[in-house]
């Protein structure tokens, strides 16, 4: 929306108001001719806006601290994290359940 508005403002203001130009016998403000630029600007703003949002919500940025449970999770392992302090079950019980249901490794880590 912002991109679309920016593009429309830019095209109509520059071509129609600031320095009206008649090109090819067309009206100074000829909206059909502004569609390509408006479309491209809309897509550009949306894409960058979405990517920006994605990076911010995930806390991603150059040299951000990954804060990972296990570095092998980016290779071939899956990690399930359970917060011990907010869990009613005892630590040993949780470890036992996990091991019984086929966990390859159970670690207790401080974060």
């Amino acid at each position: 929306m912002i991109g679309c508005a920016c593009a429309l403002t830019l095209t109509t203001w520059t071509m129609g108001i600031d320095w009206p130009m008649i090109v090819g016998g067309k009206d100074p403000i000829s909206l059909p001719n502004y569609i390509p630029v408006t479309f491209e600007m809309t897509v550009l703003f949306t894409a960058f806006g979405m990517v920006g949002t994605f990076l911010i919500t995930n806390g991603l940025g150059p040299n951000a601290n990954p804060n990972m449970f296990d570095p092998r999770s980016t290779d071939n392992k899956f990690v399930m994290a359970i917060n011990l302090s907010s869990n009613k079950m005892a630590e040993a019980d949780i470890v036992k359940i996990l091991q019984d249901t086929g966990a390859e490794e159970v670690n207790i880590k401080q974060f």
């Binding site: 520059t14 320095w19 550009l44 960058f48 990517v51």
Partner: peptide
């Protein structure tokens, strides 16, 4: 002087199209 680019021109559309395409592809 306050001359602007001609937004009726497909060459200007091209500038926008190619640069948008390049940046969005790069980000993707």
């Amino acid at each position: 002087g306050s001359l602007w680019v001609n937004f009726n021109s497909p060459l200007v559309w091209d500038v926008f199209a190619i640069s948008t395409y390049f940046s969005v592809s790069l980000v993707f």
